[in-house]
Design a protein around this nucleic acid. Structure first.
Length: 722
DNA sequence: GTTCTAGAAC
DNA sequence: GTTCTAGAAC
């Protein structure tokens, strides 16, 4: 791909050169940060017509109002003059009206953030005399301090096309040079420049969730910051190789789809036609993606497709907050460009295979082998004009480093005779297929946004911050409990008089005493006297009683309770109990078949809690949707979705082979991070997990699919009509 | 097991 | 200010 060495882009046609677009540059900085100096330097050196709009002097040399600043800004933009908004603009609200000029006048709006040390601003303010804003001397310190407290750094989603952060004099000088040398016809690339990764405001909760409670300690040098910016010069790419920063992308809470131009590279689709289709389809979908936004990304500064799309989108008046173009590497938008995109589109090949060069190779490469595996689970191929969403496993570097939760593979039409399914020059079909491809892509994204909307207005925290690999070894046994287990096992069949000691029954003849609270006796009482609990019991036999869990943790949640006196919990089980365990399993499995006849989409798991809260051995028969208002906390989740839950089939096998079951009683299982039982993605809290569960359609992990641990609908040949 | 609630997190 | 967690009481 073509890469411009020059940061600026020259106009692509004569019309553009004849009518250069003015730009709005909003200075953001405390008093004393050097805003006026910045403006003066730029205006002195620049050949472009500029107007400095300074609220301190706008009223005939005296302080004026924001409205006056806006009026004069409008007039200047109409005259083709670029403007420098020289006021503090420290919070979003102060800037908003000026950012809106972008829509009214179809101009780029840039921010220059003079984020210099407070001390410096104060000392300059204190020292200076004759300041336009009458802010000097002793009171300056207090004012600057107060203003800095409510400082809100600008973000792209406010509507800025470009933001430059300056944290020291060198940064300022560089920004002055950039703007001073900007001719009337030059256009600066979009994006965030010069942002210090260490200053990124990452919420503590998120860091904690990532198990990176310590704030990032690595201070990046100024040079490094530039390398991490989105400027994709060859040199930068080389230097920056393998140096992505992880988890430090600003979280602005907006679901964002980054997508490359489909079919215009290797598939040689006409760029002019492609740009029309992109803009048309974006226009069609921009109001169907909720609070989401679409970003067309290209790695090259001089990208023709980006420029074409940008200008056509402006003509169509597409909301620039909902759709914009971005120069950067689509696999490094967060770490390299400061733009968090939770979803990225891949210009895939029909086999959905890695490699081949271009975006496809880059994305598969950056995502690691997990993307290939996850893709294969979804589909083996893709037809032109289609798109398919693949949730990215959380261990993928693209997930952990860039916050990408989904990759949408898209296949566009091919016009290249050297590639499969070439349409030759049939643009009638080609345009239709490309439109379909983008439609399908945006539909996929819309459905992701929809599900995220359900979960929270603070979307970004949900999936993006998930990154850590499991820190807990599932097979690790807890020594303390293993010891207790052995005592329990040695006391097998030790009878307990529950009636005599209802509140404190336990094992005698050993040191292990299990103190069952009075509230923990309910199942025991029902198992012993089911006739007294006819309303609760749905099946009773000599060996078991079956009842609905009164606080079901899923759509279907039954308990099969053993009617063996003294068999309080799994720790009490020995080979002597194998028959009753098998009966419990069979009864559970029979109920599953009943439920599956009603609802074929359910999946069930049968198992025991390693350390139950309720007395009397009971088998949980639970559907795997976990769609229940009673599932409220981490313990609820982990008791069914960590090694704490022991599958009935495994328990039976272990007892048969080793004489006793493995217990995973350790409290650590209850505090494990909340991971989806299907796709294994981690979630920060129960509400977010539950929102995710409602939409996750991933297949169950391999370990659950083995040994009959999961019970699912299997069509019976007798039931078929053919 | 749940409910209640303080206080932490957002 | 609201949401969420986690510990105590039952």
């Amino acid at each position: 791909m073509e890469v411009d060495d020059d940061e600026t882009m020259k106009p692509k046609n004569k019309a553009e050169a004849d009518h250069p677009k003015p730009i709005v540059v909003i200075l953001v900085g405390a008093p004393g940060s050097g805003k006026s100096t910045f403006c003066n330097h730029v205006m002195r050196l620049s050949t472009r017509p500029w107007l400095r709009v300074c609220q301190d002097t706008i009223g005939d040399g005296k302080a004026g109002t924001k409205a006056q600043c806006l009026t004069i800004s409008c007039t200047s933009l109409k005259d083709g003059k670029s403007i420098l908004i020289d006021r503090c603009n420290l919070d979003k609200e102060q800037r908003a009206d000026f950012v809106k000029l972008k829509e009214s006048y179809q101009v780029d709006v840039h921010a220059i953030v003079l984020d210099l040390p407070a001390k410096l601003c104060i000392s300059r303010s204190v020292k200076r005399t004759g300041h336009e804003g009458n802010l000097q001397g002793g009171k300056a310190a207090a004012v600057v301090n107060r203003m800095l407290q409510k400082k809100e750094l600008p973000k792209l989603n406010e509507g800025f096309t470009r933001i430059t952060f300056c944290q020291n004099e060198n940064d300022v000088q560089e920004a002055i040079n950039t703007y001073a040398t900007l001719s009337s016809s030059d256009v600066l690339p979009s994006g965030i420049f010069g942002e210090k990764k260490t200053d990124t405001k990452v919420q503590l909760g998120i860091m904690k969730f990532l198990k990176r409670v310590d704030a990032p300690s690595k201070v990046t040098s100024d040079k490094t910051i530039r390398e991490l910016s989105i400027e994709p010069t060859k040199e930068n790419h080389h230097v920056n190789e393998g140096k992505e920063q992880s988890g430090t992308c600003p979280l602005d809470g907006v679901p964002t789809l980054a997508f490359p131009s489909i079919s215009t590279a290797d598939f040689q689709f006409n760029i002019e036609k492609a740009s029309d289709i992109i803009v048309e389809t974006v226009e069609e979908f921009v109001n169907k993606i909720g609070n989401g936004r679409l970003v067309l990304v290209d790695i090259s500064h001089g990208s023709k497709i980006l420029n074409l799309v940008k200008s056509k989108a402006a003509i169509k008046n597409i909301d620039p907050a909902k759709f914009f173009t971005f120069v950067g590497d689509i696999t490094k938008l967060c770490s390299g460009g400061g733009l968090h995109c939770n979803v990225i589109a891949n210009a895939a090949n029909w086999r959905l295979k890695p490699g081949g060069g271009g975006v496809n190779a880059a994305i598969f490469d950056a995502a690691g082998p997990d993307l290939d595996i996850a893709t294969k689970k979804r589909a083996g191929s893709l037809a032109p004009g289609n798109a398919i969403t693949v949730p990215l496993p959380s261990r993928s570097p693209l997930f952990s480093n860039q916050g990408v939760t989904h990759v949408i593979h898209v296949l566009g039409p091919n016009m290249n005779p050297k590639r499969p399914n070439c349409l030759k020059d049939d643009y009638n079909v080609g345009c239709k297929v490309l439109h379909e491809a983008y439609s399908s892509l945006f539909e996929n994204f819309a459905s992701i946004v929809k599900t995220l909307d359900k979960s929270s207005d603070e979307f970004s925290n949900c999936d993006q911050k998930v990154s850590r690999e499991d820190g807990v070894s599932f097979n690790e046994k807890n020594k303390k409990f293993k010891g207790l287990y052995e005592v329990g096992a040695s006391n097998k069949l030790c009878s307990v008089d529950g009636k005599q000691n209802a509140g404190n029954s336990g094992k005698t003849g050993g040191s292990l005493i299990k103190d069952w609270g009075s509230w923990a006796q309910a199942l025991y009482k029902i198992a012993m006297q089911p006739e007294k609990h006819k309303n609760e019991v749905i099946e009773v036999s000599d060996d078991v009683v079956v009842l609905n869990d009164i606080y079901p943790k899923a759509q279907k949640h039954l308990l099969v309770v053993a009617r063996v006196e003294g068999l309080d919990r799994l720790a009490d089980v020995s080979q002597d109990h194998l028959p009753v365990l098998r009966i419990m399993h069979d009864v559970g499995a029979k109920w599953v078949q009943t439920f599956l006849k009603e609802n074929q989409s359910l999946t069930f798991r049968l198992g025991y809690h390693s350390a139950p809260s309720m007395r009397q051995l009971h088998l949980h028969v639970i559907s795997q949707d976990f769609d229940s208002k009673h599932l409220k906390n981490k313990k609820h989740w982990n008791s069914f979705n960590s090694p704490f839950f022991r599958d009935s089939v495994d328990v039976i096998q272990e007892i048969s082979e080793e004489g006793r079951p493995t217990l995973n009683e350790d409290e650590k299982f209850m505090s494990m991070e909340l991971r989806c039982n299907r796709c294994r993605s981690a979630h920060p809290n129960i509400p977010r997990l539950k929102s995710h569960l409602l939409i996750c359609k991933s297949p169950f992990p391999a370990n659950l699919l083995q040994n009959g641990r999961l019970l699912q609908y299997a069509p019976n040949e007798d039931d078929t009509n053919y």
